[in-house]
């Protein structure tokens, strides 16, 4: 079942690659949050209340509700046009995303470590690199945040793959940090929206030698 969820997660990456509208991005991010929730739920060996609340907070509340709503608010407030406006056509994006997935599959296949849950590893690495790719090729600043969130989701899957036992305190700290950084990024997007007419990274090229 977990495998099915993870393969669906990979499909959402393809979907982002060909999505035209920013709102679609946001929805896909929300869906990814739900998928991750179920993945963690199935991975959990023992369900106690504290763990459950933590996971709920981390995936459903944070990834699927709070952040998408916040992003939608930013888009509405700054009157950002709905088209995603990538530098490269979606077709090229799709090909590159696909080749990223294939490359990670090949890479993972080359690893000789029997203790590794490879499908997690593939999904994590693919979304890490796909997120980076989205950041590089999108012109809008909001889509950069979305790329960052895709990377965060990848890291989340990766930490599941390794099964790291971080202390709860550290876990909460990490969650809080990411949440605050998204918030701060959002605030700065608002500032940029107030300062410049158009929210595009082309405005942010004044600092150079």
């Amino acid at each position: 079942m977990v495998n099915v969820l993870l393969i669906t997660f990979l499909m959402t990456l393809f979907y982002i690659a060909i999505a035209n509208r920013i709102l679609t991005f946001i929805r896909v991010l929300a869906v990814q949050g739900v998928l991750l929730f179920f993945v963690v739920l199935f991975q959990l060996e023992e369900i106690n209340t504290f763990n459950l609340i933590l996971i709920l907070m981390e995936t459903i509340f944070f990834k699927s509700i709070a952040v998408p709503l916040f992003l939608a608010y930013i888009i509405k407030r700054n009157k950002i046009t709905r088209e995603a406006e990538p530098y490269l056509p979606n077709f090229v994006s799709l090909i590159i995303t696909t080749s990223i997935v294939v490359a990670t599959i090949l890479l993972t296949n080359a690893i000789k470590d029997s203790a590794l849950d490879k499908i997690f590893f593939i999904v994590a690495l693919s979304s890490l690199f796909t997120g980076l790719y989205f950041i590089i090729t999108r012109r809008k600043i909001v889509t950069h945040i979305m790329g960052y969130l895709v990377i965060e989701n990848g890291v989340f899957v990766l930490s599941l793959a390794v099964g790291t036992e971080m202390t709860h305190l550290v876990n909460v700290g990490i969650m809080l940090d990411i949440f605050v950084s998204v918030l701060v990024l959002g605030i700065f997007v608002n500032r940029i929206g107030n300062t410049f007419e158009e929210m595009s990274v082309d405005n942010l090229t004044n600092l150079k030698d």
Partner: peptide
Amino acid sequence: TQLSLEATWKYVFICSIGIT
């Protein structure tokens, strides 16, 4: 200023990715 906005955005964003 506009410049400080630009620098701050880059700093926060790239540092966050780097830290990730």
